[in-house]
Structures are given as structure tokens and as C-alpha cells.
Design a protein around this nucleic acid. Structure first.
Length: 423
RNA sequence: GUGGAUGUAGCUCAGCAGGUAGAGCCCCGGAUUGUGGAUCCGGCUGUCGUGGGUUCGAGCCCCAUCAUCCACCCCA
């Protein structure tokens, strides 16, 4: 019996992997350019980290975690998101003492959900988290980096930024009470999920898609009326900065996050191109989380980018041909294989290009056909004529140029001035 | 977790009152014995998702199962 891929997992094969590389490189370039440093985190954490950090009542913790017991019975979980683990690591590593680290990480997250396009059980995120900065300029910085990254990827026209402020925990507590007492008499009109949430997580009712629920919410109290002055001022400042930077956004007063740790500014990037899996990025401020997880009270904010969805969108919206190599070395006659290998090696070292070694045993025609298909820009031919004259033949595969005989040295400097080595 | 659709070659798909599998693309070779892309010629490729059942006979019918997709849900 042939073994098969586990449900909800996915392989990323070439050439799709090249696209992943490009997306990752672009996003990370922006983060690094803003002074964010890499932090590497474990895939497994104690289950209670997520229960406390993300929130007991969230769907994520309630029913989507890959949880297991190790051999001594300790409760562990594969990370379903990155923020809690990052905060834990910062506390453990003493990173927050008198410093304001800006960090990025990338890697797999795991959630046990029904798989769909854009939603697999293992998925990849790039996350950024910044600590110790209470001001609105951090919220702005995070959003601005995302706007830049998405623009560089050519995805600007397909994405929309939505932002909101959900105030402090106290604000939400007061609002929650008001919302519940407003909805209680209307219970009959709510959909099943929303009814359950009335007790567990009433704010999530706000972004229910059920029509009857949205009707029932028509005259509900509004969260923005419950925000304290500081939260109002903070949100206004963030918006001013976005305005003056020319970053477009929509204030969505119904936007609430599914994870409990957020406060004040929250945001999402959404697209209409991916069906139901519309959200490609989400984030916000979480000033209370560090203290909640046992560190000293530290303001913080961050985001997570759903890379699978961004890559999917990129695939749909940005045409690309990813070449496998830059130069294909072609050998004519097996007796010249050693020479050809040496040429390939020298070109590799001198140019930094991707140079594919020659395949002995195949005819010149088929070697060139493969070179053509691989997307290589050049073929370098080594055979009897070349060995005799002490040169190689350089052939342009994508341009109308005459094939020329050059010394390896000349070829190397010519090639070095073009191309960037692929990845 | 709920509801629905779909699984045939590497890819896109055809196949029919149930009679034992086909096309295009791809790939390989040749025309052109040291030159790719176009054209022409030839060739290779299948547990018909898996297991069971009905039948003389199942890709097609029935049951189960697995996977994918869509919506719900959930989030990134």
C-alpha cells in the first residue's frame, strides 16, 4: 500500500516553492529593513500557555489544537499561533528587561480544522511582535510594513485593510454586559453559534455572517461608545498617521479578533479573491499579554501573516516564470566530461549564478532541450572544438544573440554582470 | 464539527442501458550522428481513490471508507 499525505498537511513542490521563497524574501526584507530581528521558537509548548494566553473560550483552544501527552503525562500542544510562544520566550530569555525588542519569526502553525483551499492543518506564518512601545507609532509601523510588503509583492490592488479599536479589557467588559443585556431578549433571532457565544464570547457575535443575527444587531449598543478617552485618542492618532502616509484603510466597527489577548488597535488584511478564506493577515495590540503570562507589564503589538494564503493570492494575481537554473552546462562527448565539470565549477564560483552540471550520455539536442525547459538564460557548451581552442561556447537561450566562443575567464565576467543567482 | 459536490495517465479531461480505457498537453526518440524553442513522424505512461457487495461481466449500480473542493464554522 502506497503511503499517503496526512489529511490537512501539504507538500510544497517546485516550482511553487520558488514562489514561496520570493514571497518570504520580500516580506522579510521589509521587516529586517525596519530593524526586526529573527527569533526562532519551538513548535511545541505546554498546552496551558495557549489556554492562558490565547483564551480558554476561543474556538482555537477549545477545539482546534493538536494536543498530546508526552511520556511523563505532560500536556503539550503544537503551536496554533505564534504570539503566545514568542511572549513566553521573551520573558524566559529576559529580552524585555529595559529593552524594546522588535522580532520576527516564521514557521508552521497547526490547527485541527476541516481542510479547505487556503486552510490546511499545518500552515505557515510570518509573524512580527514588538515590545515595550505603548505609542500609536508602533501600531502604525506594523501596518505600514505590511502595506509596503504587500505593495512590493504586487498584491496591493487585491487586498483591503480593515482596522478598529476594541479598547481596554475594562471597556470591553462594560460593553459586553451591555451587549448581552441587549441581545438576551432577542435570543430567538440569533443563529445557533451566536446563541452559544452569548455566554462564552459575546463580542464574536458582532462579526457573525448570519443574516438574522446581523438584523438583531441593528440597534445594538456600539463598542465605540464604550471606549475610554485614552483608547479613543490612541486610535485617532493611528488613523492620522495612516492618513498622512497615504495608506488606505476602512474602519470596521464590527471587527473583533478571535483571540482574547488583543486590546485597542486591531487590524486585518482581507481579499475577495480567495473565497471564504478571505483573511490573509491579522494583528493588533496586546498590552496585557506579557503580564498575563507572568512577565512584568509590558505594552506590545504584532501581527501574523498567513503565508499559504498570500502565496495563493500571489499565484492567482502575479504571473511568474521561475527558472530552475541560470546556466546549463552542456558536454559533447563523454571524454570531455571532466573539463566540463571544471568549467561549471569555475563559473559557479566566479558568478554566483546557478550553474547546472552537465549530463553525460545525453545528446547535445536533448541537453539543450532540457536547458530550454529549465528556464536557463544561457547554455555553456564544452566539446572537442572547445577543448582544442581552450575556450567554451556561450549560447544565449532567451535572446537573439550569436553564440560566441570565449575563454572561461571572459565568460565568467560576462555572466557575473547579469543575474542575481536565483534565490 | 455540519451540509453539499467530486475522485479515470504526471496535468486537464472524455468514456456509458453495466461488455473489460481514450484524447490533448507533458515526457522520450527520430527527421537534423555538435545545437533548444516551430513543424512532422513514431513511442512510453493507468492499483479507473481504497475495500467490499450485486452481476456471466463493474470506471459506470449499491454500501463503506479515504482524500480533495465548495459553503457553514474558524482564523492567518
Amino acid at each position: 500500500m502506497r503511503s499517503s499525505l496526512v489529511r490537512g498537511m501539504r507538500d510544497i513542490l517546485p516550482p511553487a516553492s520558488a514562489r514561496w521563497r520570493e514571497v518570504e524574501k520580500t516580506v522579510l526584507g521589509v521587516l529586517v529593513g525596519h530593524g526586526y530581528q529573527e527569533i526562532r521558537l519551538p513548535l511545541i509548548e505546554g498546552t496551558e500557555l495557549f489556554q492562558r494566553g490565547v483564551g480558554e473560550a476561543t474556538d482555537l483552544v477549545e477545539k482546534e489544537m493538536y494536543s498530546l501527552k508526552d511520556r511523563k503525562g505532560k500536556d503539550l500542544s503544537l503551536r496554533p499561533e505564534g504570539t503566545a510562544g514568542c511572549v513566553r520566550a521573551c520573558i524566559d530569555g529576559g529580552l524585555l528587561r529595559g529593552r524594546t525588542p522588535r522580532l520576527w519569526y516564521q514557521g508552521s502553525m497547526f490547527r485541527y480544522e476541516r481542510p479547505q483551499k487556503g486552510r490546511s492543518r499545518e500552515f505557515s506564518q510570518i509573524g512580527a511582535e514588538a515590545f515595550g512601545l505603548p505609542g500609536p507609532e508602533l501600531d502604525f509601523e506594523l501596518v505600514a510594513m505590511l502595506a509596503q510588503a504587500f505593495a512590493e509583492l504586487g498584491l496591493g490592488p487585491f487586498l483591503r485593510l480593515e482596522i478598529n479599536s476594541i479598547g481596554s479589557a475594562q471597556d470591553r467588559e462594560r460593553y459586553r454586559a451591555a451587549l448581552v443585556s441587549y441581545l438576551k431578549p432577542l435570543v430567538e433571532e440569533l443563529d445557533g453559534d451566536s446563541r452559544r457565544r452569548l455566554d462564552t464570547n459575546p463580542l464574536r457575535i458582532l462579526d457573525s455572517k448570519a443574516e438574522s443575527t446581523q438584523r438583531a444587531l441593528a440597534h445594538a449598543p456600539r463598542l465605540e461608545d464604550f471606549l475610554n478617552e485614552t483608547a479613543e485618542g490612541h486610535f485617532a492618532a493611528v488613523r492620522r498617521m495612516l492618513d498622512s502616509a497615504g495608506i488606505e484603510y476602512r474602519v470596521n466597527r464590527r471587527l473583533v479578533r478571535g483571540l482574547d489577548y488583543y486590546n485597542d488597535t486591531v487590524f486585518e488584511w482581507v481579499t475577495d479573491e480567495l473565497g471564504a478564506q478571505a483573511q490573509v493577515c491579522g494583528g493588533g495590540r496586546y498590552d496585557g499579554l506579557v503580564a498575563l503570562l507572568g512577565g512584568s507589564s509590558t505594552p506590545a503589538a504584532g501581527f501574523g501573516i498567513g503565508l499559504d494564503r498570500v502565496v495563493l493570492l500571489h499565484e492567482q494575481c502575479v504571473a511568474r516564470d521561475y527558472a530552475e537554473v541560470d546556466v546549463q552546462c552542456v558536454v559533447v562527448g563523454e571524454e570531455h566530461l571532466t573539463r566540463a565539470l571544471a568549467v561549471a565549477d569555475e563559473l559557479r564560483r566566479r558568478t554566483g549564478l546557478r550553474v547546472l552540471a552537465p549530463a553525460a550520455g545525453a545528446g547535445v539536442g536533448s541537453q539543450l532541450r532540457r536547458a530550454d525547459r529549465s528556464g536557463a538564460l544561457w547554455a555553456v557548451i564544452v566539446g572537442g572544438d572547445e577543448v582544442e581552442s581552450g575556450r567554451i561556447s556561450l549560447k544565449w537561450l532567451r535572446e537573439r544573440k550569436e553564440q560566441t566562443a570565449l575563454t572561461v575567464d571572459e565568460a565568467a565576467s560576462l555572466l557575473a554582470s547579469s543575474g542575481d543567482g536565483g534565490c
